[in-house]
Simulated scan of single mutants.
Amino acid sequence: MDVHCHTLEEVRTQIDRLDRQIVTLLAERGAYVAQAARFKKDVDAVKAPQRVEQVIAKVRALSEQVGAHPGVTEQVYRAMIAAFIDQELTEHRRLAGGPTE
């Protein structure tokens, strides 16, 4: 990826632009996570550690393809997945009629 800015202000403007896109995509991903809770029978299915590792392997490979740092991508995805698992567990409990906190 060949990106060149000439001032710190340009860098910040571009980061702000990307943050808007990233947050929008997080909202979309979160909506799918909430839907996934409907299809999972129990907490183990929500946590799905094998699926987490599949996603991590996939995004690390994608990072290398697009020129991102695989370690950074993995750290970001592990944090994001953990937060989405918490969201999905809450939704799963809600659907099961249990407490959500």
Rank of each mutant, 00 (worst) to 15 (best):
K47C: 11
T73R: 00
S63K: 05
V72S: 09
V46R: 01
A37D: 10
A57E: 08
R93G: 01
D16E: 12
I22D: 06
L89G: 05
V33E: 02
I15A: 14
P49C: 09
E53V: 05
I22A: 05
E91M: 07
Q35E: 11
K41T: 14
R78S: 03
Q75P: 05
V72E: 04
G30M: 01
Y32E: 13
I15Q: 14
V11Y: 04
V23R: 00
T7S: 10
A37L: 09
G67P: 13
V46S: 01
H69S: 07
V11A: 07
R78G: 02
P70D: 02
A57L: 05
E91G: 04
R60F: 07
Q50E: 15
V59R: 04
R51M: 10
A27V: 00
G67C: 11
D19A: 09
V55N: 14
A36E: 13
Q35G: 09
M1E: 05
D19T: 12
T100I: 05
R29F: 04
I56D: 06
H92C: 04
R20S: 15
R94H: 08
E64S: 09
V46I: 12
E28A: 14
T24S: 07
R93V: 00
A48H: 04
D19Y: 05
K41Q: 11
L95S: 03
A82F: 06
A96G: 09
A31K: 12
Q65V: 06
E10Y: 07
